[in-house]
């Protein structure tokens, strides 16, 4: 029996493409956000650290967008998908489009996403989709370092001064509602996990919490209560911030279509 056709529904190329786009856009938009720190980080060493992570994320997005373009089969390449799609067509988590605010806020957002991508890629490297498995295996090594970096900052700031503690706790309260979306299972998610393409989100959720809780404890932070979710970036429903990011990111290609350098 074909594993891709189960009671959860068939995994069409369109479903697969949409899933790959979710992964791609989450990395792309977070990479763009982190890039905003270049030249503004508290120390030149952090400037480079954040830029390295940003470049890793853009690199992941490039591989994933290329694959999404092939699944789509309409001849669109990574650049066309990154620079010529509109807001509603972006499938990134609403969490990653949230503004940088201060360094602590950026670190909290990063920890939440790093831990998520780590647990996701750990499982995706065994995906029945060989292409996705290969991309995940490469991204996994990068992501382990991302969490090492963001996690050690989280502990330093959370268990630092009264001021730094208050700022990262506040950031956690602000960002926590956006994490609800990470594990909200859509019909497509059930089909994808039934086919062994993607992990079950409930399993990822447990692992994510198990990874974060000791970090929060070490950083003396309180995990906020779960709130009803308000955004659903994976469905293309974004907060007001994504449009501004795209304006920045896509300006050059839209003003000078096809420009290369």
């Amino acid at each position: 029996m074909n594993a891709a056709t189960t009671s959860a529904g068939p995994v069409t190329a369109a479903v697969r493409k949409d899933y790959v786009l979710q992964l791609a856009d989450t990395s792309l938009i977070l990479g763009q956000r982190l890039g905003e720190w270049v030249g503004h980080a508290p120390a030149i060493e952090e400037d480079l650290g954040l830029a390295n992570t940003a470049l890793d994320l853009v690199g992941q997005a490039r591989m994933l967008l290329t694959y999404a373009g092939e699944l789509e089969g309409e001849g669109r390449d990574e650049d066309q998908l990154a620079f010529l799609r509109e807001e509603r067509d972006f499938r990134n988590l609403a969490l990653v489009e949230q503004p940088n605010r201060d360094f602590g806020h950026t670190i909290v957002r990063q920890v939440l996403v790093d831990a998520y991508q780590l647990e996701l890629y750990e499982r995706l490297q065994h995906s029945t989709d060989a292409r996705l498995a290969a991309i995940a295996a490469k991204a996994l090594k990068e992501t382990r370092y991302h969490l090492r970096y963001s996690g050690s900052w989280l502990v330093r700031l959370g268990d630092g001064t009264a001021e730094s503690h208050a700022r990262v706790q506040d950031a956690l309260e602000r960002l926590w509602p956006f994490t609800r979306e990470l594990f909200e299972e859509l019909e497509a998610d059930r089909a994808l996990s039934a086919a062994g393409i993607a992990p079950e989100l409930a399993v990822v959720a447990v692992a994510w919490r198990a990874r974060l809780d000791p970090l929060f404890a070490e950083a003396t932070l309180n995990r906020p209560k779960d709130a009803p979710f308000r955004w659903f970036g994976r469905r293309g429903v974004h907060s007001e911030h994504l449009g501004y990011i795209l304006a920045d990111m896509q300006y050059m290609q839209r003003t000078h279509p096809g420009a290369q350098w």
């Binding site: 060493e45 370092y145 050690s152």
Partner: peptide, 17 residues
């Protein structure tokens, strides 16, 4: 050389720089 608050951060910065 580089600046860091502790040895762990020094290694991370060294890796990144």
């Amino acid at each position: 050389s580089l600046h860091a608050v502790d040895a762990r951060m020094a290694l991370e910065h060294a890796r990144d720089v």
